[in-house]
C-alpha cells in the first residue's frame, strides 16, 4: 500500500457510512420496538432478509416496476409485522424478558428456514436500474447503490421524524412508550399502537433489506448482520433513534477502516470491539435515554 491519501480516506469513509446506514436502519427497528413495548426483537435482521426476498420476488420474478415493487415489499412486511405482534408477540407481553428473547430468536430461525424452503439457499443477486453506475466526486467514487442507501436512509429518517413529532398516532406512540397505563387512560388504544409499532419496525427492516440487497447478495443468512446492528443500537443508547443511526455509522465506518488498514480478521471483530469499548466507557450509550430503574 502506497501512502494514505485524503481521497482514499474519504472513499473508505463513504463506504463505511453506507454500510453504517444499513446497520442503523436495523438498529432503528430494535429501538422502535423496544421503546414502545420493552421487547427486544432478535428477529429484526431476519425481517430485513424477508423484505429483501419479497422485493427480489416482486421485482425480479413477477416483474413489477421498480418503485411499485419496493412499495409493495415494504407494505407486505409492515402487514406481516402487524400480524406477528397481534397473533404471536402479544401472548408474551409482560412475561420475563428472557421469554421474549428466546421467542424472537426462535422466530428468526423459523424465518430463515422458511426463506430457505421458499426461495432456496443459493444467493441471489438483486439487479436495480442503477446497478454498475457511479458518481465521481474528485477522486472519490460513490456507487449509485451506496448513494441510494445514504439518500434512502435520510428520507426514511425525515419521514419517521415528522411522523413521531407531528401526527396524532406518532405522538400517541411516544406517549405509550413512556407510560402504557397513562396512555390507555387518555384514550390511546395501546394494543393497536403496539402492533403498529411492529408494522413500522418491519417496514423499516424491509427498507434496509431492499437498500442492502444490491450491494450484498440475497440469501437466508443475510439477517445475521442484525447482531452488528444490535451492537449499534446498544452503542447509541438503545432508546434513542438518532443514537441508533449514529451507532450504525460508528460501526460501519470503523469496520471499513479496519478492513482496509488493519490485518485480516479485524474487520469482523470491529463491531464487537467497539461495543465492548462503549460498554466500558459509556455504558448508558451515546444518547442516554434509559435511566436506571428506580426501586
Amino acid at each position: 500500500m502506497e501512502g494514505v491519501t485524503l481521497s482514499q480516506l474519504l472513499q473508505v469513509l463513504v463506504n463505511g457510512l453506507a454500510v453504517g446506514c444499513i446497520y442503523g436502519l436495523i438498529a432503528l427497528g430494535f429501538v422502535l420496538v423496544y421503546k414502545a413495548t420493552e421487547m427486544v426483537n432478535f428477529a429484526q435482521g431476519d425481517l430485513m432478509m424477508l423484505g429483501a426476498f419479497v422485493a427480489v420476488t416482486l421485482i425480479g420474478d413477477v416483474g413489477l416496476p421498480w418503485v411499485l415493487g419496493l412499495f409493495m415489499s415494504v407494505l407486505a412486511l409492515a402487514v406481516f409485522g402487524y400480524l406477528l405482534d397481534a397473533f404471536v408477540l402479544r401472548r408474551v407481553l409482560g412475561e420475563p424478558q428472557f421469554a421474549v428473547v428466546m421467542l424472537t430468536i426462535g422466530l428468526g430461525f423459523i424465518f430463515r428456514a422458511v426463506a430457505g424452503l421458499v426461495w432456496g439457499y443459493d444467493p441471489r443477486s438483486f439487479p436495480t436500474p442503477y446497478t454498475g453506475k457511479s458518481l465521481r466526486v474528485g477522486e472519490v467514487v460513490v456507487s449509485y447503490e451506496n448513494l441510494t442507501i445514504l439518500l434512502g436512509t435520510l428520507v426514511l429518517c425525515v419521514v419517521l421524524f415528522l411522523f413521531f413529532r407531528y401526527t396524532r398516532l406518532g405522538i400517541g406512540m411516544q406517549a405509550t412508550s413512556q407510560n402504557q397505563l397513562a396512555a390507555y387512560y387518555v384514550g390511546i388504544p395501546v394494543k393497536r399502537v403496539f402492533s403498529l409499532v411492529w408494522a413500522i419496525s418491519a417496514g423499516v427492516a424491509a427498507v434496509a433489506g431492499i437498500l442492502l440487497a444490491p450491494v450484498s447478495l440475497v440469501q437466508p443468512g443475510m439477517g445475521f448482520i442484525g447482531i452488528k446492528a444490535f451492537a449499534a443500537a446498544v452503542i447509541g443508547g438503545f432508546g434513542s433513534i438518532p443514537g441508533a443511526l449514529l451507532g450504525g455509522w460508528i460501526i460501519g465506518v470503523s469496520e471499513q477502516f479496519a478492513g482496509v488498514y488493519l490485518p485480516a480478521g479485524f474487520q469482523e471483530m470491529a463491531a464487537y470491539g467497539i461495543l465492548i469499548l462503549a460498554l466500558i466507557l459509556r455504558p448508558e450509550g451515546l444518547f442516554a435515554q434509559i435511566q436506571r430503574k428506580k426501586v
Binding site: A175, Q178, N179, L181, A182, Y184, Y185, G187, P189, V190
Partner: peptide
Amino acid sequence: PAHRIAPLGLARTFQNIELFEH
C-alpha cells in the same frame, strides 16, 4: 376497554401517579 371509555367523558387518576415522566 379504557381507551373507548375515555372519549365518553370519563377520566381518572391513579394512587401512585401515572404520568409521562420524561
